[in-house]
Design a protein around this nucleic acid. Structure first.
Length: 267
DNA sequence: ATGCCTAGAGTATCTAGA
């Protein structure tokens, strides 16, 4: 089972690129972020014609998340993170697909910092941590996939010097990502790549793609039942090199078949 | 310190992204 996450930066602008990617890589599940489309402006028919069932949470102009499932209909179980009924931004969607609980998230960018946008980022992150703890405690097979807008360490960026004041590298952002991992989640790309560099985002500015001056900010966190099924993880870099690309490339995990649960032996 | 590049809204030039 291949599960992917892709910040598309505008689903309608990027529709040809998304369809080309789905056709070539054939992920079983695809979490999309930054749809930048109102609910009624989402290209449902084109996605379904490509063989994918879909649930989505749109928003005019900004944000927006979707979960796609190949030859299946995702069963939505949650829309929006709990903890703040006044939060109107479309940044979290949760659905069940093929026995896996899929959380698709688009964590706030938080720039400029300090300021209200950074405060919102940290508050949103705290709500995610609280929700993730409940998911972890449930023991369910869960993947939390999306654009976290956090560069976890200096090994996850081509050169941190010019980014030191950026919200993505702040100690407050990194500490929260660390706290998430400390719950037990497996950071699947880091797990698969070890010491090797791996990026998922290249800024449009300053030929950052051509120089491979990237950041790792899109993450797939696996709960224990999925972590033991992790076979490989990767980034579909070719997508970033296509004409009119998103500034992100899709990241993915390949999971092996679910093993039958071992019977516990009483002592 | 700021712009760089791209997208959406709307039709000039903002906001927002990361």
């Amino acid at each position: 089972m291949k599960i992917a996450t892709f910040n598309v930066n505008g689903i309608n602008t990027r529709l040809p690129a998304v369809l080309a990617w789905l056709g070539r890589e054939r992920p079983d599940v695809a979490c999309l972020q930054e749809l930048k489309a109102a609910h009624e402006a989402f290209p449902r028919q084109a996605i379904e014609a490509a063989g994918y069932g879909v649930v989505w949470h749109g928003q005019k102009a900004w944000n927006g998340v979707a979960i796609l499932a190949r030859d299946a209909q995702p069963v939505e179980v949650r829309r929006g993170l709990p903890g703040d009924p006044g939060d109107a931004q479309s940044r979290y969607l949760e659905a069940e697909v093929g026995g896996v609980l899929v959380g698709c998230l688009y964590l706030p960018n938080g720039n400029p910092q300090p300021g209200p946008k950074f405060d919102y980022k940290l508050a949103w992150f705290d709500r995610l941590i609280a929700h993730a703890q409940r998911l972890w405690d449930s023991g369910a097979p869960v993947v939390l996939a999306g654009d976290y807008n956090v560069v976890p360490t200096d090994e996850d960026i081509y050169d941190p010097r010019s980014w030191r004041k950026d919200a993505l590298l702040q100690p407050e952002s990194r500490e929260r990502y660390r706290r998430l991992l400390d719950q037990g989640w497996t950071d699947s790309l880091r797990q698969a790549f070890g010491d090797r560099r791996v990026y998922t985002f290249w800024d449009y500015f300053r030929n950052r793609w051509e120089r491979d001056a990237g950041l790792r900010i899109d993450h797939l966190l696996l709960s224990a039942p999925l972590a033991q099924r992790l076979e490989t993880a990767g980034v579909d870099r070719w997508v970033r090199g296509e004409p009119r690309p998103s500034d992100h490339a899709p990241a993915w995990v390949q999971l092996g078949a679910a093993r039958r649960t071992r019977r516990r032996t009483a002592k």
